[in-house]
Design a protein around this nucleic acid. Sequence first.
DNA 1: ACAAAAGTGTTAAGCATACACCCATGG
DNA 2: CCATGGGTGTATGCTTAACACTTTTGT
Lengths: 233, 233
Amino acid sequence: MANTKTSTMSFYPNQDTFLIAVDCIIFGFKDNKISLLAQPRFLEPFKNGLSLLGGFVKENESVEQAASSVLSRLTGLENIYMEQVGMYGALERDPGDRVVSCAFYALIDIESQDEQLLEEHKAFWINIDRANELIFDHPRMVADAIKLLRQKAAIQAVGFNLLPEKFTLSQLQALYEAIYYQVFDIRNFRKKMLSMDFLEKLNEMDKSGSKKGAYYYRFRDEKVQNDQYPSRF
Amino acid sequence: MANTKTSTMSFYPNQDTFLIAVDCIIFGFKDNKISLLAQPRFLEPFKNGLSLLGGFVKENESVEQAASSVLSRLTGLENIYMEQVGMYGALERDPGDRVVSCAFYALIDIESQDEQLLEEHKAFWINIDRANELIFDHPRMVADAIKLLRQKAAIQAVGFNLLPEKFTLSQLQALYEAIYYQVFDIRNFRKKMLSMDFLEKLNEMDKSGSKKGAYYYRFRDEKVQNDQYPSRF
DNA sequence: ACAAAAGTGTTAAGCATACACCCATGG
DNA sequence: CCATGGGTGTATGCTTAACACTTTTGT
């Protein structure tokens, strides 16, 4: 506990202070699988262990800013949808030192991100089923993030952040099947998706996936859904 | 920023450290309204302002422990259902000093709690519609907590934490109406509640609310619900 | 006898589910 | 011409939502 200091000249003297980290679960969608960015840890403890992308919060930035800057440093992307997963504050979560961490998840289009930057930071995509190889309590963070993502996807058009701007309904279905880890009936899926009016059909086809070709769709972002709860009584 | 120190002898040298607070949104149910515990703030800034119950995290406790100890110090209750609301880390959220706060909400039976202790700490119950009188970002924390509570109550038998061990269906309905801030049809409500088999009907009646008397019910705690998502396709 | 809360059932509409075949095209 | 993925409609059961009257009993 070497770096748990005590505050002095302050409104709140004689209180302990802590290192605060942010850890980012950066989801992408590739080969019909949900993946996330990981990185070999570059210092002890667990040097070279598989780690989420993170960093320490600095004095002059908010916790959210710290998370965004991790994300943009690693992917080159700005203004990405991020959501707080929660705070992880167990005593021994980091055997190196007492560190309290705040986890965020982000959804990015895997294609629009900067390969170069990833390589510079030795970061790479791993499949979510490898999340339990991560160090510290990172596996738990990922599990919590997936839970939130599923909840969110059930009521909001969240998945569009993970796809390129133009996508086919088959891609969209594959994405939802990856998120929920289950298969959906193609007719029911399309019916439901089209009945919510998120989607705009384009006059353009993707001929890469089939001979016949599939129409591209695009997300109407005017149609951002409000929060809602499942109906009850 | 007087107490933002820098770590020294550590695995993570030269990093900034922070004060970490916990703030507890302690919900109770009284007079058919959801209320929460508040307290006049006892130091500057905002001395005497209306504040959530909170405290600083200490070196030798987890963040969760810090929250539980705030709760038990103020109410005398142990082993109470608490859930993390989130971390609040904006730069200027506390004008006194840089403090990062983690909010939790708890549900307690207002009757089972220690009046004495509340008075000692000058804590008192306020109606949730007064939450916007709270200082700092506490109004936002309360709003976020209510949102979580609503989500939770839609899929889990969460409300029982707020009622005495024995309660009538009318009380239960009043509770749900307070949580969701809307009225439910009495027949539909009872039908649905009884169809989930949370409830055990007792052979005892409450004669205080009516001439006829109403049966008491009790929560079967074997029947704790698992997490689930709204159905989709 | 009446006021006040407790308790009870049915119907209609909407939503989720299950299910199978034709289409267009490149090779 | 055929293999591959794209695209479509209907019937059934379940859940929700809307709705009004009877029961009990203390005063």
